[in-house]
């Protein structure tokens, strides 16, 4: 009896279950509920992929016609549906946002885990929860009303001319992914065994030396995961970016220039195009690219050895 209980508790393979346990209706019903997500993934993939390839199959565009750098969908003479500007834009904002957000978030996580007295932690932790809850449109609206005017008018005097731009999009995104990276990094750091810290401290090193040479190396893989998950969120974020990035379908060349991303383009034009036309079909292709990108991120995170895609 004791043995069979223990083996169920540890969730042994089906082999370890008695016949009665295997046909337990509760087990089957809950399995159905949990397994529904597999069907969802497959449906999502099929629907997006089916619509995403229409531009090639139904409208007969070549692969090169879509994966090129010229986006000119409403021209009558030189119509072109190259989506590379949007892919480059997505990668561009994602990378710059991660560059801005990483030092802040990792620093904040280290602060909360290693430095903060109790009272400071009890301020910072709920603050992160609120931070993560601020809706995308609110960030976008802040971008429009606070950030962009600031970049355009107040920084003008010192030689910057920025407005709706790659840079503005990256700033907004960096704030949005900050809580993501922070909370995962915090979990990673707090799960590093305390004995390692004691060992370092007992050798007469300072707290910062311990953080720098023991804590960060020990958490490196986990921190990388956190950054990748932050980048994943940045790549998929739509409204906030669309509201501040300027939405010009050109290859990004300068942080100060307006550009566009896959998500912004989908956001703006799905409602303005007619189903079945190439312009609409190519938006679905962009959706498919985004879907594959995010699946790629999940596999990357799995390779990094942690399963933290849910947050």
């Amino acid at each position: 009896m004791a043995n069979s209980v223990a083996s169920i508790e540890r969730g042994k393979l089906d082999r370890g279950l008695t016949f009665r346990e295997r046909i337990d209706p509760a087990r089957r019903i809950t399995l159905l509920a949990a397994g529904a997500v597999i069907a969802l993934v497959l449906m999502l993939l099929v629907f997006i992929a089916f619509n995403g390839v229409q531009i090639f199959t139904a409208s007969g565009f070549s692969f090169d016609a879509i994966f090129n750098a010229t986006w000119n969908p409403d021209s009558t003479t030189a119509q072109s549906f190259g989506i590379l500007p949007f892919i480059a834009g997505t990668v561009g904002v994602m990378v710059v946002a991660a560059i801005i957000a990483t030092p802040l978030s990792v620093g904040l996580a280290i602060f909360m885990a290693e430095v903060a007295p109790d009272w400071a932690r009890s301020v910072a932790q709920p603050a992160m929860e609120v931070f993560v809850g601020i809706p995308s449109v609110v960030w976008g609206w802040l971008g429009i009303t606070v950030l962009v005017p600031f970049l355009r008018d107040d920084l003008h005097g010192i030689g910057f001319t920025l407005g709706f731009s790659w840079f503005a999009g990256s700033i907004v995104l960096s704030l949005m992914i900050l809580p993501t990276i922070t909370s995962i990094t915090f979990d990673v750091i707090t799960s590093i065994p305390a004995e390692l810290r004691s060992a370092s401290v007992a050798l007469g090193t300072t707290r910062w030396q311990t953080i720098r040479h023991v804590v960060i190396p020990a958490g490196a893989a986990g921190i990388m995961t956190a950054i990748v998950l932050g980048m994943m969120r940045a790549a998929g974020e739509a409204l906030a970016v669309q509201m501040v990035i300027g939405n010009r379908g050109v290859m990004p060349t300068s942080l100060a220039d307006p550009m566009s991303t896959l998500t912004s383009e989908i956001t703006l034009d799905v409602g303005n195009t007619v189903a079945g036309e190439p312009w609409n079909q190519v938006l679905w292709t962009m959706g498919l690219v985004l879907l594959l990108m995010s699946f790629g991120f999940v596999l990357l995170v799995r390779r990094l050895g942690r399963r933290r895609a849910l947050g």
Binding site: L13, R27, T30, L40, A235, L290, S294, A309, L310
Partner: peptide, 26 residues
């Protein structure tokens, strides 16, 4: 309570991660 390790729970976990990675616009 029931899953433990095995191919089916693993598939479910992977699917959960995939779904939550999908951009909401998609």
């Amino acid at each position: 309570e029931y899953a433990g390790q095995g191919p089916i729970p693993n598939m479910i976990r992977l699917s959960q991660e995939l779904i939550s990675s999908v951009p909401s616009i998609v």
